[in-house]
Computed example of a mutant assay.
Amino acid sequence: MKLCVDRDILIRSLKYISSIIYYTQNLDIIKNILLIIKDKNLKIIGTNLEIEISINIPLLECNKNDKFLVSIKKLLNICKVTKPKTFIYINKEDNFLLINFNRSNFNILTLSSINFPIFNESKIKLEICISKNTLILLIKKTQFAMGNNDIRRYLNSIFFEIYNNKIISVATDGHRLSSYKVNINNGPEKKISILLSRKVVIEIYKLLNNLDNLYDNINIYICETNICIIINNIKFLSLIMNNTFPNYINIILENKNNFIIINKENLKNSILRVLSISDNKFCCIKLKINKNNLIIKLSNSYKEKAKEIININDSSNIKSDYEFGFNSKYILDVLHILESDKIKIHFSDNLSSIRIEDINDINSNNIIMPIKL
């Protein structure tokens, strides 16, 4: 078997796939990729058993169809030492792959593809087409609220709900909750929901951000046990979690009678300034709200104190003083993903959660639970 491939196309494809392969895995076979050569087309498949990525790339030359495994680490390293805009010539003889370019020659071992694990796609329940930026937005606005290694697996995930021409993404770690809604043109009338693990969400987000701007629309196929995302010549497959997600709607719709409107950057910078004396980078801060001001307080274990006072833009419905305690990291995470200059903070009393909204984006909801002072 002999073939010729463009080095730049090959290395870009290998980098996409290598991001999901963990070289510390005990199962040696998935440290390899499956190469399928057929009709002047090279299909590369990599998996970590939870995620599978396959990419089709055109070949400049090919004299025979074949299928085998090869180490992705070695093949990627060889491509990295190759100059850009180079053609790589590959011959397969017995169990070795002979790689040639310019005056360099490499022989690397190949393996049989018989035992390589490949996903079996289940029955398709829904097919939708959305823009790449729409999916990026759904993940970006909620992923920070996912749990990390929580024993309750559904907290280490993002929940997607699709119905009535809209998609809602929701994430919570039990102490905070974030949701985001976008409108689409081809959504189903019947509600369909899926739960994707933290690992899967991060890899999808990474892949979407690394893609060229040429890739705009993506096709999503939701099946019984997995989800398939197709972007031009790239196919991303992953398992769907079978856990039940908490009822988030009641939390978002909880009535909060009071609100203030405040400058986002002023709040962010004030929190960062009071944190300069903290023992712990993301410790508890006190927020005190009165008719005219938002006061931020912090004290550390040495009884040192810091205080910031911020003017409130709108507090017309505030009738008394309120005081809360919050994890400063949770507030900063929300402020980081909001885009307007002003934000709206809803609350009801000293013991309830707060809801932070972007004043110009009604599709975003961010709930933070208080810490007992």
Rank of each mutant, 00 (worst) to 15 (best):
V5Q: 03
I9F: 02
L10V: 04
I11G: 04
I11E: 08
S13D: 09
K15S: 13
Y16Q: 06
Y22I: 11
L27Q: 10
N32V: 07
I33V: 15
I33M: 03
I37A: 12
I37L: 15
K40A: 15
L49Y: 11
I55D: 09
I57D: 02
P58Y: 10
V70E: 12
T82E: 03
K83H: 14
I88Q: 00
N91R: 01
E93M: 06
E93N: 12
L97A: 10
N102C: 01
N107P: 01
S113I: 01
I114Y: 05
N115R: 00
F116A: 02
F116W: 01
S122K: 08
I128M: 07
I128Q: 07
N133Q: 13
L135V: 10
L137I: 06
K140Q: 11
T142K: 01
F144K: 02
F144N: 05
N148K: 11
N149H: 11
R153K: 14
N156P: 09
F159R: 06
E161L: 14
I167E: 14
S169A: 09
R176D: 11
S178T: 06
K181P: 01
N185A: 02
K191Y: 03
E203A: 07
I204S: 09
L207W: 10
L207I: 10
N213K: 15
Y215I: 12
D216C: 07
D216I: 07
C223H: 09
C223M: 04
C228V: 13
N233C: 00
L237S: 03
P246V: 12
P246S: 13
I251L: 15
L253N: 15
N255C: 09
I260D: 01
E265V: 09
E265M: 11
N266Q: 14
K268C: 03
I271V: 05
K281H: 03
L287V: 04
K291D: 13
L294D: 05
L294A: 08
N300S: 05
I312V: 12
N313P: 05
N317R: 06
I318W: 04
K319H: 08
Y322S: 01
L335K: 13
H336L: 12
I337L: 06
S353I: 05
I354M: 04
R355H: 00
E357T: 01
N363M: 00
M369T: 05
M369C: 04
P370K: 00
I371D: 00
K372T: 09
